[in-house]
Design a protein around this nucleic acid. Structure first.
Lengths: 208, 208, 208, 208
DNA sequence: AATGAATGAGGTTTCATTCAT
DNA sequence: CATGAATGAAACCTCATTCAT
């Protein structure tokens, strides 16, 4: 069993695989990501995205129908990257608790290593764009995570909490922790991340 | 001891007291809040704010220097409202765990009862505005919350986690839960809110 | 009986009376009319219309929703002017043939005296805008003209031709004649206009 | 005597013979014709013309110097087609009136059978392109038609009207009638077309 | 204090045209 | 010959802000 669904099984809703991205499309994505982190969606004109990507303004419109479409596709692009990172880190052989902690830490590390992705996602889901997301961010997480959690509940390891609640709660803890690491001076070591993960674990596991 | 600081003690950084708000200023605030929830900052022009508030476009500029200033002041206005709600709910006489649960639930209820405030805050802190916030949102929470948490750690009730981490984690859990209630079909009763709060509690308390 | 309908009876479809036009709206209309004659719809950017009208580019958008809306309203504005001119010239007391000739000549004179209006109308009806005209130009003419023509047919003065055909045919002759006067060196005197009108008359009357 | 000039005698001004048109050039012409009818000159980008013609955007520029050149050449192409149709229909052996009626009806039928050509021509002559037409449309008609009309006047059959006026008037009646057939519900039979032509004839002939 | 017409900088987007392949 | 990605000037339009009333 995969902790996360395999891409070809449930990747419905992820627009565009990242494999066959042209160099130019990727440059536009990265340029946007960079600028949005600093200036936000509104503060980032297409002209600046173009210049920063090293292409002409009009070129963007060969690859994306509009600024909105660019933002939406970029969101899918980032989710794909995130899923790839998590699939790599996951290990079905691990014992449940260890697998959970490993998952939590990998997830958090992805955001720590891709701060622009984190800030983009957070801006996205908390803006009107978020409501247009075909599969909502938190719901998506919950989908990915559901099977794993359900098996935990069924085997009596986890508290019987509604999956619609448990997924987002865990995701929230990951995002919050990554943000603290990125915004504050506290630099969290992998060991400290593990401690935070264990706090969450203590919260959701059934106390023996 | 106050769980939250008393307004007149630490309200530095909150621009504008809410007591002597003119009717018109309040109307502008509420109009903005309403529109930003649906359309976001960018999608909400001043003209629309004005119309929705029943005033002329120019009038807004008697009360606020600019659109940015309006947004920033509105942020302070909302934080004041939130603080007032929490001060009312808090009860110094309660036993520690109960006081924590009560606090968590009250906080969550504030967001549930003021969805526009929740979405405004979340948009605000995840946008470039957020970085201009003199006292950052999560930090603010942590400030408000610090004394209470510290006493919990000192008396051996809570795990010795860095307050810079614990505050945001708890706040994150509250926000996430409120969002789920507001966005999803699951309607959480006070009882269910309590269960979520207890999950958090189980995470942060020292297991006996 | 009016040769043309009285404005308040059948003016449905005429968007906006011209009476209460602000000075600025009128300036925008006249500016557009002037520029469209020389450069066509496509060759006339809003910026030029604005400059030529002595207003800022944005000002146009207080009065018109879009460039298309401006063109459509301008069309209505011109039709109103034309109708006013024809109502003034018409005289119910005249004998049928004389009234027809008088009408034909007045109509032609309107175009000769308002060449910008003529070229605007001709461009309009022969462009995709034309199909959006709620009441088509030729149909409109036919409506205006119908009662008069019908009475001519009923009293045995005119050939029994379908009104859908007769109206446009006459209108076409008027437009063509006005264009020749405006584009070519032949300057047609009122007397010569009358001769052309009589050719048309000879065509449609029942030969005794 | 030809009613219309023979192509090789007076076809000066018609850019591009239609005989040796490559398949590709013809495809571009037809594609343009089709799109301009629906969207107008402005609403028809080169990219769309290319796609609709089944060629690449750049390919058009092997055949035409610019969009303007394409439009201008297409105009000549259509006029050639029209002339060919009229030459086929004309019959020098006919008696004058019959020949006129035959001509009028053939002309009208060409437009009815080639609605895209009609709308293109009408758009063309009523746009800034029209003024660039080396031989103006109405003037061209008058040239084609002149000899025939002059002989009619000289033999006392037609009223002595200036040819600059008579030609356009007749052409206007043809265009108007064809448009009514195409745009309105009245479907005119050949017989009815003949009736309209006779109205025109009654107008221009000398009444006995 | 209140208005809202007017401004114009600057945003998004289109599209005729070019050119390396 | 043919392609179509790339260009960038210029179009349309928005909207924060001002100011005469």
């Amino acid at each position: 069993m995969y902790l996360l669904c395999k891409p070809n099984e449930r990747s419905i809703g992820l627009r565009g695989r990242m494999d066959n991205l042209t160099e130019k499309k990727k440059a536009i994505f990265e340029s946007t990501l960079e600028l949005v982190k600093v200036n936000g969606f509104h503060g980032t004109p297409m002209s600046q995205i173009a210049k920063n990507a090293g292409v002409a303004a009009g070129t963007i419109y060969h690859y994306f129908e509009s600024k909105d479409a660019l933002i939406m596709e970029l969101y899918g692009y980032i989710l794909n990257q995130r899923m790839a990172a998590l699939l790599t880190a996951d290990n079905e052989q691990m014992e449940f608790k260890e697998r959970f902690l490993n998952f939590w830490i990998s997830y958090c590390n992805f955001y720590i290593q891709h701060p622009k992705a984190l800030f983009f996602i957070e801006q996205f889901v908390n803006s009107p764009y978020g409501t247009r997301d075909p599969v909502n961010e938190t719901e998506r997480f919950q989908n990915e995570f559901k099977d794993f959690v359900i098996s935990g509940i069924e085997t009596g390891i986890l508290k019987p909490i509604d999956g619609y609640l448990l997924g987002p709660l865990i995701h929230g803890s990951i995002v919050t922790t990554a943000k603290i690491h990125l915004c504050r001076k506290i630099e969290l070591t992998t060991n400290e991340l593990r401690q935070v993960a264990e706090v969450i674990w203590d919260g959701i596991k059934i106390s023996s």
